Structures are given as C-alpha cells and as structure tokens.
Computed example of a mutant assay.
Amino acid sequence: MIRTSLSSGWPLVAAALLVSAWLVAPGAHAQERVPVIASYAELRPWSDPLEALGTLRADESVTLSATMTETVAELNFQDGEVVEAGQLLMRLEDSEEQAQLRAAQALYDERRNAFSRATQLQQRNLGTRAELEDSQARLRQAEAAIEEIQARLANHRLRAPFDGVIGFRNISAGSLVTPGTELLTLDKLDVVKLDFRVPEVYLAALQPGLRLTARTDAYPDETFSGEIANVGTRIDSVTRSVTVRAILANDDMRLRPGMLMEVVIQRRPRDTLVVPESVLVPRGERHYLFVIDEADDNRLERREVVVGERRAGEVEILEGLQAGELVVRHGVQRARDGDQVALLGIADDETAVRDILQRQRPTAAPDASAKGGA
C-alpha cells in the first residue's frame, strides 16, 4: 500500500513543479533585458574617394650649366645647402675680362672729361656744335663698351635664380667647363607638385581646389594633404585619362621629386549622416537598424534606412534616420522590435566597444586557497 501511494503521488508533485516553472518563467524572462552598446548618428564630413598613383615634382627645378669655356675659380655652396634667390654660387675665371673692364672705364673717364670740356667751350661760343656732338657720341660708345664687358662678367658668375636646395656638387675649383656642362641642380621644395592620371569618366568631378590626401612608402604612418591646382586640357587617346596636378605643402622638405605616392581624391565633399557599419541588419536588398527610444525606457524600434556610400567601418545614411538618434551598435543579433534593452554604454571616437565590454566584465573572485593561507 505504501508503494502504491508513493507512485500515485509523484505525478501530482511533478505537475505542480511544472506549473510553477511555467508561472515563474514568463515573469523572469520579461524582466531580463538584452544588453546592448549604442552609438549616436552624427553629421560628419564625407566624400567619395577616388584613388590614383602619382609622381612628385619640385615646385621649381633647374639644372644650371656653363655658357662658355673657362675654369672654375670659386665655389660658394655645399651639397644640400639651402640658398636664396640671387646668391652667388660659382665664379669662373674672369681676370682677362676684369682687365678689359678697367681699360674701358679709363677710356670712359677720358671721354667724359673731353665731353665736359667741349660743353664748356660750346657755352662760351668757343667750340662748334659738331665737336660737342662728336664728343658725346664717343662718351656713349665708351659706356656701351663697359656694359658689354659687364655682361660677359655676369656670365662668369652663377647665381641662384630662386630660393631652393642645392643637389650634389660634382665639380671642383680649377675644373675646366665648356658650354652645356651641367654644373649643379637647384630645386624649390617648400611646395611640391603631384602629377597623376585619372580616367576621363571622372572628369566632371575634378576641379581646382578639390581636397586630396597622399601617402608614400617612405613614410607609411603619415598622410599628406593637398588640393588640385589644375586639370589637364587634353585627354590621352590611348589610356583615355587626364593628367591632374595637385599642390602639397612640404615645409619640412621630406617629400622629394620622383617619389611615388598613392592619391585619394575627396570627390563631392559634403556633410552627411554617418553611422557605424555594424548597426545595419541586411534583409535581401533592404537595410534595417534598431533605434533606441530613450524617452520610452530604452525601447527598440526596427527602422528601414536607405544607405549611400561606405568607407572603412562607416556607412552613409540617406533616408530613415535623424542626426542625434541612438542606434544599437553591439548586440544587434539579439535585438527585437519593441523590446526594452539594457544600455551598457555609448561608443564613440574616444570610447571603443571593446573598452565598454571590458568594464562590464566581473572582477575575478579571490583565490580561496590563497585566502585560507592568509
């Protein structure tokens, strides 16, 4: 009898426990909120990138050469020296021209005195008008001779045509140079030109003043900024591309002519609504995201949006969202329309999702054995 009563009582106990679990479970589940991390939708500068490869050129560049056959008498520069416009860089031997100049100046002084005497005689009516005019012509002839010699002397002196940096010095004092001999190079590098080619289909989007960024393997961790200065007037009939020239500031002169640079042109610059790409929930060709209504105790609203361009980790929202709205960034997989969520934190440029998750981790309990040993 005892066995019969026990066996008949167990189904009742099991049923009671099952009902209790059913009654308690819905309430407990209703109180549990899905933890999420959110981000604010923000208006940010945006552009459509266009990539190209370009080559750097100096803002001004020249190779100075000799115009006569002569020996080098004086060098006033060193490799890599920064020089100013008009600075004397080199002097060729000019002793013969200097002697000719002294003789011409002596002749000029003689004829100037003769012209002065002829003028005085003319004023006293003791000289003829013809003698005065002949004396004046001889004086002008002497002046022209001096100017000719001074011009030849100027060819013996090599001066910097603009501010710049000297290249390597490959010549020494006493070297014999001939017309056309390359003596030195001079580059103006405080500003550099960046030339690159762009397919003609993008011609309508190119215009002077358009911003761009450039990178080079020589400085892999740095980005250089500039803007388009000019767009070529001709399309290459073979490559169907147009040459574009940009200007980059180079105050520290780290960029050098001939460098290969990766160029990213910022087309169609604008301010647009931007959210992290991780907030999107794709469904076929449509895109959704979850908006958190802070006024309604963090209740979720699934909303369809129209996306635009994308870039690393971010996406442009064209329709369906307003600036300042809070969207679910982490925990999207467990989010449901109409649910109320537990907001763990807001991720932004200064606070990453990983930082928020690490703060939510429970602190490890102290080791029991270590506590007992203490």
Score class of each variant (00 low, 15 high):
274 V>K: 04
170 N>M: 06
94 D>K: 04
132 L>A: 11
346 I>E: 14
312 A>M: 04
93 E>F: 02
191 V>W: 11
60 E>L: 15
315 V>F: 09
264 V>A: 11
364 A>T: 12
222 E>H: 06
16 A>S: 04
303 R>C: 07
125 N>T: 00
236 D>C: 02
111 R>I: 02
114 A>N: 07
250 N>R: 02
21 A>C: 10
109 D>Y: 12
119 T>F: 04
208 P>V: 03
160 A>E: 09
358 Q>N: 10
66 A>C: 03
93 E>C: 00
177 V>W: 01
15 A>H: 05
16 A>C: 04
293 D>T: 01
15 A>T: 08
374 A>Y: 02
285 E>V: 08
122 Q>C: 03
367 D>V: 01
24 V>L: 14
178 T>A: 14
332 V>S: 10
234 R>W: 12
364 A>W: 08
15 A>E: 02
190 D>S: 13
80 G>P: 05
59 D>S: 08
43 L>I: 12
321 L>F: 12
269 P>E: 10
105 Q>D: 09
98 Q>L: 10
225 S>Q: 12
206 L>Y: 14
154 A>L: 13
28 A>T: 00
68 M>R: 15
272 T>H: 05
290 F>M: 11
194 L>I: 08
255 L>F: 08
56 L>A: 09
221 D>H: 01
282 P>F: 01
198 V>D: 08
238 V>K: 15
311 R>I: 11
277 E>Q: 13
12 L>Q: 04
152 R>W: 01
183 L>H: 09
325 E>R: 04
188 K>N: 15
236 D>W: 00
296 D>W: 07
259 M>E: 13
287 H>Q: 07
336 R>N: 05
321 L>N: 02
227 E>N: 10
322 Q>V: 11
183 L>D: 08
332 V>P: 13
352 A>M: 06
310 R>A: 12
131 E>H: 02
84 E>A: 15
237 S>T: 14
363 T>M: 12
217 D>S: 14
253 M>F: 07
373 G>W: 15
67 T>E: 07
12 L>A: 11
104 A>C: 09
253 M>T: 10
268 R>Q: 14
16 A>R: 01
203 L>T: 06
78 Q>T: 14
24 V>D: 04
230 N>G: 06
279 V>D: 05
137 A>E: 03
37 I>N: 05
189 L>S: 09
350 E>A: 13
52 A>D: 05
60 E>G: 13
371 K>P: 02
77 F>Y: 15
99 A>C: 01
180 G>H: 13
152 R>L: 12
263 V>T: 03
332 V>A: 15
106 A>W: 04
80 G>H: 09
122 Q>R: 10
304 E>V: 01
57 R>H: 15
167 G>Y: 03
279 V>R: 04
167 G>I: 12
228 I>M: 08
163 D>W: 06
291 V>P: 08
232 G>D: 07
274 V>M: 07
44 R>M: 13
355 D>P: 03
125 N>K: 10
63 T>N: 10
54 G>T: 00
3 R>L: 06
150 Q>I: 00
32 E>D: 08
335 A>S: 15
